[in-house]
Structures are given as structure tokens and as C-alpha cells.
Amino acid sequence: MLAFSPRISVAELVERYYASLYRYAYRLSGSQADAEDLTQETFLRATAKLGQLRDADKVRAWLYSILRHAYLQRQRSAPQTHHVSLDDLFDVAEEVPDPLPELDAEALRKALDDLPEPHRTAVLLYYFEELSYREIAEVLDVPIGTVMSRLARARGYLKARLLTSEAVASSPKGRSADGL
């Protein structure tokens, strides 16, 4: 069922990638409901475009890019929410504990939510999609210097928010309601 490609079916795509896509969507949107919508929308778009997928080895990156486009499209039409100013955080130099305990998931979510959208997208392209600075610059269509600046500010901000005694969790909170 739902087979649209000789090499991979949409059902297989869902099976393999729905969890990671949901997590990515959740990091981007900061909302479970939006993340679920975005994940479903991603698979709907992927179903329509599956014939365009030339390289099955790049299916993960392809799905991420579909999700990212869907998210940015929503962002453009949605009213802008208030985000923190990162102007003063560029030179913040937090000490990084060694060893560094696992970061608190909720604190991370809140910190990412407070980031301005261009910075949050750059952070997630870097950490979630594991793109290089150059690749991020191409995806966002901005100079590489802008990517460096955004990531440096975002990293400084995340350090300031997450490397506090309250934010560093003593134990992982990960619970997988779906067995994941």
C-alpha cells in the first residue's frame, strides 16, 4: 500500500523517519501540536514529490528539507512572537563543566523557543541536520559570515541559559510514549 516509488514506499518512510521528523519539528516549532501537524504535512508533501527523489541515500536530508520549508512557510504567514535579544550575549563566556551532565530537555526547549527564528533555524540546521556552515549558508541563502554570527550568538545564549545548576539535569527525562 501507498507504494509510489520502485525503491521506497511512503509507508517505509513513515516507519523509518516519523520519530526523528517529529523531534525536528518539535525543536523548530516548540509545540507538540505544531510538530505533529508539520510531521504529517511533511509526509503529505513527500508523497506528492516522491517521484522527484533521485538519491534514496539522501532521503533523510530530503525529508528534513521538506519539513523545514513547511515550517518556514508557516513562520512567514504567522504573526511574529517576541524573542530575546541576543545583542548582549555575543561575548558571554560560560565555563563548560567537565564532565557536562545531560542537559535538561525542558530547559532546552524553552531556550530554543526564546531564540529568534533565524538563530533557531541555524542552530537546528547545525545540530539536528548536521549541516556545515557553508551548507547552512546555502540553505538559508545568507552569507557564511551571517551563519557564523547567528550560531555564535545562539551558542552563547544557549550556554547562558543551559549551563546553570538549575538547567543541568541530574538525570535524563527522556520517556518515550511510543517505545522510542
Binding site: 517529529y22 523531534r23 505533529e36 542537559l103 530537555a105 542552530v123 527522556g174
Partner: peptide, 18 residues
Amino acid sequence: IQKAVVRGDVPAGLKDRI
């Protein structure tokens, strides 16, 4: 950050809903 960012709960039944 990388470890935390890719970690997270997935709502139960999401796969079936999709």
C-alpha cells in the same frame, strides 16, 4: 546540545495517525 536536541518524546500513536 546535539545529544539533547535530537532527543525527545514522540506522541503515542503518531505513526498510525500519519
